[in-house]
Write a protein that binds this DNA or RNA. Structure first.
Length: 230
DNA sequence: CCAGACGTTGTT
DNA sequence: GTCTGG
DNA sequence: CCAGACGTTGTT
DNA sequence: GTCTGG
């Protein structure tokens, strides 16, 4: 689940204030089909400063020999995150959110991909944890994992798992730099009020990671498969 | 003690 | 680095 | 998540 | 069949 998402924003000036920023210091080309291992915009606190920068999607721990992984680390199960060597110490102190304007889910059984969005929000957030890896040259590289949880009743029509989707207004409650209690934040990620979502079927061409164009967002001509408003 | 893993999803 | 399995 | 590789030697 | 790369 949630092995792909999108962030095709061009009007960052309108978006940044929503997430607590007035500027950004990197170039970003709109992305319609984002796959694991690529660099994605992430919001987090570093030195008490709210920060927006890109990170590798797919967490690499500091002790890794290289900035790659043989394991699937782009997702972390919220229910068991505190028991995992890779993630447990991060929940208390290295929380983050990825920015997204949709995520993709392949329906169980039919294999039909859907684009899923938040009702009333152009851009929303995905709860995540991050870590920092230091290369032999001393350079630092950050990476992240999206938290997943069991599907809610709506999502269950498509899939049995889903990412922890946050409205922009809920981002502060996940990042809150004052809280270092991992259990408390785990409970938040499992039980906060999930925003209303809607979904529509899209072309299977997004299965190919090299496909990354506006056509990815075009609904299939199949109104019956649409789920939710907007 | 040391060696080896460190992760998720989906499908059968 | 730290935990688990043997 | 899906797609694509999965291998070696030697030559340019 | 299974792993890696995007």
């Amino acid at each position: 689940m949630c092995g792909r998402f999108s962030l095709a924003v061009t009007d960052w000036a309108a978006l940044l204030p929503q997430f607590g920023f007035d500027s950004m210091d990197f170039y970003y080309a709109p992305r319609y089909n984002i796959a694991p291992t690529t660099e994605v915009p992430v919001v987090f606190f570093a030195e008490r400063q709210r920060t927006l920068q890109t990170m590798r999607w797919g967490l690499i721990p500091p002790w890794s020999d290289s900035f790659t992984s043989r394991y699937a680390t782009h997702l972390a199960r919220t229910e068991s995150v505190l028991e995992k060597r890779l993630y447990s110490r991060l929940v208390g102190r290295q929380r983050a959110v990825l920015l997204a304007d949709g995520f993709y889910e392949w329906q169980t059984g039919s294999r039909q991909p859907y684009r899923i969005r938040v009702q009333g929000e152009e851009v929303f957030a995905l709860a995540a944890v991050y870590d920092v890896w230091r290369g032999a040259d001393g350079g630092e590289r950050a990476s992240c994992s999206i938290l997943t949880r069991p599907a809610n009743a709506w999502m269950a029509h498509i899939h049995d798992r889903m990412p922890a989707v946050l409205r922009a207004s809920q981002v502060d409650a996940w990042l809150r730099p004052d809280c270092t209690d991992a259990s408390e934040m785990q409970q938040f990620a499992l039980h906060y009020d999930m925003p209303e979502l809607y979904a529509y079927p899209v072309s299977g061409r997004i299965g190919n990671v090299r496909v990354d164009d506006a056509e990815c967002f075009v609904p299939l001509k199949d109104d019956a498969s649409r789920m939710g408003g907007q």
